[in-house]
Design a binder for these strands. Sequence first.
DNA 1: TCAAGATATTGGAGTACACCAATTTTTGGT
DNA 2: ACCAAAAATTGGTGTACTCCAATATCTTGA
Lengths: 252, 252
Amino acid sequence: MEYTNFWLDSWAMTTERPPAKSDQLRRHLVDLLVGELAPHARLPTERSLAEEFSVSRLTVRRVLDQLEREGRVYRVQGSGTFVSEPRIHKSVELTSFSEDMRSRGLRPGSLEVSCERIPAGADIGYALQVSPSSEVLHIRRVRTADDEPMCLEHSYLPAELVPGDLEPELNGSLYEALSARYGLTLHRAEQTIKATVLDPDEARALHAPPFSPAFLVQRIGFDARGRAVERADSLYRGDRYSYQLTIYRDPQ
Amino acid sequence: MEYTNFWLDSWAMTTERPPAKSDQLRRHLVDLLVGELAPHARLPTERSLAEEFSVSRLTVRRVLDQLEREGRVYRVQGSGTFVSEPRIHKSVELTSFSEDMRSRGLRPGSLEVSCERIPAGADIGYALQVSPSSEVLHIRRVRTADDEPMCLEHSYLPAELVPGDLEPELNGSLYEALSARYGLTLHRAEQTIKATVLDPDEARALHAPPFSPAFLVQRIGFDARGRAVERADSLYRGDRYSYQLTIYRDPQ
DNA sequence: TCAAGATATTGGAGTACACCAATTTTTGGT
DNA sequence: ACCAAAAATTGGTGTACTCCAATATCTTGA
């Protein structure tokens, strides 16, 4: 059993914005792609879609640009727009561990949750752009899927951004809690992924044999203004987790 | 010493197209970003850029959309467009091991190159959508940086796409050779990355101790029409290689 | 019947304008 | 001087149109 994707716990991913006019068109096209159309089948032309959906052709093009970037369609000038071969279409994006697990019919959860305020120290201080003597909130969790340990995670947040006691909320989504209570909304994450092996303590926490292969993911999360708001170190069992991604030759 | 990025040897990345009108604007903005502007400095407004470069505002927006996708700028409605914090800005894209090494002042190379035609078998056959009894070209290489082994790679290509003898060209870029001789141009790659440890043979090839942590990358490369044209299995030393990437909350 | 040229179709890029939402600046009142 | 409201600015989305390049289809002539 393997899992997939670069993820980050959802940060108010469901922030409501009024549906753009193009959303209905996108939905229609995605339905076509997901449903009955074979690979290399030709989609309706830009001009006919614009007429059918009462939108301008530029609006159609913007939706198709997006689907092309996602690798779901390819376009040939003078010919048309075609359905790509079916593959795993998840490009790199911010998705949720919890959502990911749920979409696979698994129940996400946490074990051994602990929460403390500690001085940042040199490394964490650099990552979060705070002084080494500043307080940060340290959260340790074992993330689970159907109660089986998947990931050992240490998160560090600048204390000044998260006053009060968070611990009661940490069985759910950390980021949902941060967004709801503090208005912290993540915009971007920088991640480094390393291959490693589990030391005996880590192996015990993850119910794996010592020195088993694992991924170490170090992440810094930034809000829309570029402030560093989270540093996390996460260890994933190598036998239960892998990354799958689609890489494109950039259209520009 | 660690290396970075998802890569693929360059496939004729320099295909020439006439410069679009927006290219001059992009170059100007990139110069600003690379040069004198500090993180969080405000860029000129969309309307002033449109006037200065005699383009429509939509054209400006398309260039800025692109720079935003690359993580080089962030935009705040009502405020302006700002320079992102300097980070490694390489989003996931098709770049080249050779280019990557060279950009770090290292010399890419290959050792122990071998080349043979073998039947595909079940797994490779599935990956390349050919019958298990079909011939594929199997290329084994140890990729090096400054003559130090970095990666043990096995590539498999459908034999019918690559008639003749490729071996003389395999010290350089495989993909450049494929593009120049056969017109094979890669458009997309699907990759799976796993955490593993090196067995004794693999460890010997990579000059590492047995059971050291490593990445195993399995890749299928597709051309623009969605044909599978390459399957590769690559083992990277975990102490000399890591992945760094920037993930965005998707604007749509 | 086949091949070459002409025409039509379709994606690619751009213009000029409109309106809306979010943020910043200015103005007026206390 | 400070605060609230109004106005201005700036990014976000969309319309309707134009012209160009690449491909597909049709027409004509040998």
